[in-house]
Computed example of a mutant assay.
Amino acid sequence: MADDTRKSPSDGDEKPRYRTNANIMPGGMANTAGGTPADFTLADAVKTIKLEEYKDFTKKPCVRDGLLTGIGSGFALGGLTAILRRPVWSVCNYSVGGFVAMSLGGYQYCQYYRTLERTGMKRITEVMEQKKAEIAARREAKRLKEEADRLAEEKRREEERRKTWKYWAEKNLKIW
Rank of each mutant, 00 (worst) to 15 (best):
G78C: 05
K55I: 15
T48P: 08
L68D: 00
L80D: 00
D65S: 11
T48F: 04
R85G: 08
K60Y: 04
T81K: 14
T48L: 08
T81A: 13
I49R: 12
G66L: 06
K59Q: 12
F75V: 15
F57H: 07
G72K: 00
F57T: 09
L77Q: 08
T58A: 12
P61N: 02
T81Q: 09
T48Y: 03
T81W: 12
L84E: 00
D65A: 10
K50F: 02
Y54V: 01
L77R: 06
D56N: 11
L67D: 03
D56T: 09
I71C: 06
L80P: 10
K60D: 10
A76G: 09
L67S: 06
I49M: 10
A82Y: 09
G66A: 05
L80S: 04
A82Q: 09
L80I: 12
G79F: 13
K55Y: 12
C62R: 02
R64H: 02
K60M: 05
V63I: 08
L84F: 14
G72E: 03
C62N: 04
L67C: 10
S73Q: 10
T81N: 07
I49P: 15
V63D: 12
G78L: 06
F75N: 12
S73L: 15
A76T: 08
L80F: 12
P61E: 00
F57C: 12
